[in-house]
Each structure stands twice: as C-alpha cells, then as structure tokens.
Simulated assay, not measured.
Amino acid sequence: MRKRILITGAAGFLGSHLCDRFIAEGYQVVGMDNLITGDIKNIEHLFPHKDFEFYNHDVSNYVHVAGKLDYILHFASPASPIDYLKIPIQTLKVGSLGTHNLLGLAKEKKARFLIASTSEVYGDPNVHPQPETYWGNVNPVGPRSVYDEAKRFQEAITMAYHTFHGIETRIVRIFNTYGPRMRLNDGRVLPAFIGQALRGEDLTIFGDGTQTRSFCYVDDLIEGIYRLLMSDYVFPVNIGNPNEITMNDFAQEIIKLTETSQKIVYHPLPQDDPKQRQPDITKAKAILNWEPKVSREEGLKITYSYFRKFSSEQLIETKENKSFN
C-alpha cells in the first residue's frame, strides 16, 4: 500500500516544499495549516493533485485525520521574529499543545513522527560551531523565549514519547534556510535585505555587522529532512550550511546581487539576538551521508529571481514591521 503522510504548517515556506517533495516521491499527502502565517498560494498548485488533500486547522486544538498515517511532520509554527513577537501565545501553544496533540495522533496511528526544531535551541551560543551535544545559552524569559523555549519543549516531549511510548521519532534542528516562497516581510535577514534593495531603501543591520549567520538553500534542507525521516536515528540532527558569513559581508553580497547602490545603516542589536550561527554537521554527514550542495551564490540568484517576480504582491510591507537579523 502507498504511504500516507501528514505535514503541518503545509502552507508555510518549508511545509510547502515538503509537500512538493513527498508528492514527487509518490506519497499521499495530507496538508494542515491554520494560515496564521502560511499562504495558501504556496500550495494551491497541489489542489488538483489526486494525492493531495488540505485541512485548514489549528493543531493546538484536537487533531483528527481519518484513515491510516505512516508519517507525521510537524512544521506548524511561526518562525520569524516579527511573527512570534506579534503572536507569542500562539507560538507557545503550537509548540506545546500542538506537539502534544500530534504525538498523540502518531501514537494512535503508529506513525513515525518528525519534529522541526531549530538552531534557536542553542540561544546566543558560547560554543562555536554548534554541535548537537551543546545544550545552549537561552534566556527563558526574554522576548525570544516564546520561540526558543517552545522548540526546546518540543524536543523534550518528542523524546519522552519515544522513550515512554515507543513512538518512532526524529528531531531536525534547522539552521537559517532561504529560497522561493519566503515572505519579504517576515523579518528574517535575507528577505529583509532583498526587500529593502527592491524598494530602494538602505539595508538595515542590527548590531555592528560582525555577527554571523550560515544560510542553507531550501532544496538542500528538504533533502536532509527526507534522509533523516528515513533513517533510524532518534536524537537531534543539525541540518544547515556551515558556510558562515558576517552580516556586513552578506549585506554587500545582496547589494552586488541586486545591482543597487544602497548604504548600510546600523541599529541596536535586539535583546538575546545570537552573535554567531554555524552548524556542526558532522553527524548529518556520518549518519545521513548529507551535506549541502547549492552554493550561496547560486541559491541567492534563484531566490532573488523569485522575489523580483512576485515583488508586486510581496512588497506589502507595513512601516511598523522591523526586520531582525
């Protein structure tokens, strides 16, 4: 019998790419999203497909899916500072109640469960690069804690269901990812820079620009997630691109890419914003035989082309939104 998979956050950036991947692999895909940050346009191309069905539902409430499920991927969560600072309670609920509901569904269906965790579990790290063995430096009551601690709780309850109930579980720690279907107004550094360049605005860096990020193209990330789901490894695995770059250098790359002449302006660094981000992917290489293939230069060209094509819709960015690195 053909495999059937539930993907929450299906209309989001990563969720929609996962729907595409599993449809391409011949799965029956059930997408679920309450559209609080997702966009139905990301998956509308799948609606005519006989193997795709969609439910507009908030997984923080009881989740029921009729029929068998072989896999559950939990990707429902606000993921950008603008989103989770605007809706902190919903962010905590989808990480706690939502994860609990879906683990219960996995137990009922005897389905393998994969949780989308994040590099934010490492907080503002004192260890660099960040291996999975690092426990992190997180402020549990700071403004970012609603996201950071929600993800840390997700990992804890997922592992508890594995050890206590014997559920097959997987945990992916996702580092900065980019590509088509990101929102220009979601506050993350790459779409923020490109959006400012397209509008002819100066590029805003928070902090002095020496802080670093490591950007992974979405196709590479999806491949890593797929391999992890199909593996037998139950502990967290970093998936990201270890090619690290400072915000100053990255801003210059965007200026060159967009052929604009904007200046770079600096604002104070938000509280608890991490100074360094670089994944240690030793485990992913050894266990999954995975490492990123798409260079930042190649990935940025594809992403910029997407943003230019859809800029008329994406550039509805309100003035009160602030971008964060």
Rank of each mutant, 00 (worst) to 15 (best):
G98I: 06
L105V: 09
H162M: 12
I174F: 11
Y84P: 06
A160S: 15
K107A: 13
P191K: 01
N126A: 14
Y122T: 07
I167S: 04
K86I: 00
K93V: 00
V127I: 15
K93L: 11
D124V: 12
P143E: 09
T169P: 08
G142R: 04
S96E: 00
L184A: 15
A111L: 13
Y134A: 15
Y161T: 07
V138C: 10
A116S: 15
S117R: 01
G136T: 14
K86W: 00
L190E: 03
P131Y: 13
G187E: 03
T118V: 08
L102Q: 01
G123L: 13
Q154F: 00
I194G: 07
T163F: 09
K86T: 06
D148F: 13
G98Q: 04
G166D: 01
F113T: 03
T169R: 07
M159I: 15
P78M: 09
V121Y: 07
D83P: 04
G136L: 13
G187T: 05
A79G: 13
R183V: 01
S96N: 04
V146D: 06
K107H: 14
R173P: 10
N126S: 14
T163K: 10
D83N: 13
H128A: 11
F193P: 05
H100A: 10
P78A: 10
T158Y: 10
K110V: 12
T163V: 12
D186V: 12
L92M: 12
E168W: 02
T118Q: 08
F175G: 13
H162K: 11
S119Q: 12
M182I: 01
K110L: 12
N137M: 08
R173V: 09
E120T: 15
R144F: 12
T91S: 02
H128S: 12
N139A: 03
R181M: 10
I194S: 07
K107G: 02
D148A: 15
F164Q: 10
W135Y: 15
R181P: 02
V127S: 08
A106N: 07
F153P: 06
L114C: 02
I174W: 09
R181W: 11
G187Y: 06
R183L: 11
L103Q: 05
E168Y: 05
S77C: 14
A150W: 12
P140L: 08
H165F: 13
E108P: 02
R152C: 04
V94Q: 02
P88T: 01
V189S: 05
I174D: 09
P131A: 10
R170A: 08
P191D: 00
R152T: 03
H165I: 00
N101Q: 08
E168V: 09
T169E: 04
G98Y: 07
I82T: 14
P78E: 08
V127F: 12
T158W: 07
Y122L: 04
W135N: 12
P125Y: 02
L184W: 05
